[in-house]
Design a protein around this nucleic acid. Structure first.
Lengths: 236, 236
DNA sequence: ACAAAAGTGTTTGGAGTACACCCATGA
DNA sequence: TCATGGGTGTACTCCAAACACTTTTGT
């Protein structure tokens, strides 16, 4: 990352990557270590990158995710740009930026994206000398993240809630290929922070043409096994 | 605009300013003249500006509108950023940028905003050596604007439609202080590109607590005068 | 047999939609 | 008196929300 001609040090993208573990809504964060006068300081940040010259914004976001997880064709959606001049005013953040980019940084406007991924896929976290982990979105609210990343995550969550009202089938991006109606409902509820009625939920999803029932049931549960369903993209 | 230290030549804001003249939905465009090898070329663009160093994005958008119209406290909403590298690839656009900013421009990412204003206010269009005019949004679709401004307007319109679903009272930003239900309905219809039923529309708006009936009727119409209403912000 | 979650219908209220006639005013 | 838009009510449909019991399976 040391060539000034390749990177544009004024604009970045950040991705709020959502995942669902069957119980909780999680966001992917990168561990960050900063050596401040021989004191190691650790915190977390969103996956992101400054953009390449001649790279479109969507491409940059896509690149960040591919570099981080090895996955392609992830569902991404731009939702807001953040440009407050003092979002890069914390000396710790500035120090980290200049060390990792090797560029002189004055101020960065970041374009934020949400991404939805299936947490069950074995992800290859490639982030160079840093590691990625999932964090419960409720816990994140109590953590102090780099830059204005707490605020970005908050807005990202609002964004996916709005999107899901318009395109409910995006929920399936967060579920494994085969899933039960319970899993779907629990996910729906944790995203919208409600508790929906089991029967009304069944009724609603049974009207979705793109929800296909399989001739299989779940296994290894200590009670009646639930039927498995899959999502049929072609019917959206 | 000639001081490199004051302006950040990598990021701009553009405003899609909507107005309503009683019949049609209009957008404010700036006339642009470019001298290309002694041939004068004229076209139109959105009001916008590169951002000042140490200026937040919302502030920049607000500044653009104040400079252009003299108005403050206009309703503004950020909706999308555009950063395709070839959005600034047209030589005419590049030429114009370098002449007006006096800066070397490589590539600009723009953060787009919608604004809603009352077209009846006598606007003071101050745009330096350029002039501003309202254009019917239907006509704009057939025009060739600067940069990717056609696309930005298209997305801006979609944005206000979505917003109005969530916050219908934003419609009143486009109407004069006193208005009739007809005006409100016609505006509603042109924004959503539908024709709504007069009685059903009356029923719907009569449930809005923030719509206050006045003890006045319109004047100077060659038929039965309609009752006037006003919008009460406090009741939203 | 019991614990634990799966699966299943009916009723009610509110919102949206379709639809037609008389009223008030100015010219 | 006529032309023009203003103002009004009812019936039907659809969707959301409330609500409880039986079934299946593993231990």
């Amino acid at each position: 990352m040391s060539n000034e001609n390749l990177y544009n040090p004024h604009i970045s993208v950040d991705c709020v990557v959502f995942g669902f573990d069957g119980e909780k809504l999680k966001v992917l964060l990168i561990e960050r270590s900063i050596d401040e006068q021989n004191e190691l300081y650790n915190d977390k940040k969103l996956p992101g990158s400054i953009i390449l010259n001649n790279e479109d914004l969507d491409e940059a976001a896509s690149r960040v995710l591919t570099e981080l997880t090895g996955l392609k064709n992830i569902y991404l959606s731009q939702f807001q740009s953040f440009g407050n001049p003092n979002r890069t005013s914390n000396p710790r953040d500035l120090l980290w930026l200049e060390r990792t980019t090797q560029l002189k940084i004055e101020r960065i406007v970041t374009v934020a994206y949400t991404a939805l991924i299936k947490i069950d896929r074995k992800l290859i976290f490639n982030a160079t000398d840093s590691s990625a982990n999932w964090y419960d979105i409720k816990e994140i609210a109590k953590m102090q993240l780099a830059f204005d990343h707490n605020q970005i995550i908050e807005k990202g969550l609002e964004h996916i809630r709005h999107q899901l009202k318009v395109e409910p089938h995006l929920l399936f991006e967060l579920l494994p290929k085969k899933f039960t109606i319970s899993q779907l409902r629990i996910l729906h509820d944790v995203v919208h922070q409600i508790r929906s009625d089991v029967r009304n939920f069944q009724k609603k999803v049974s009207q979705m043409p793109y929800l296909l029932i399989l001739d299989e049931v779940e296994e290894g549960v200590p009670h009646r096994a639930a039927r498995l369903y899959k999502f049929d993209k072609k019917r959206t």
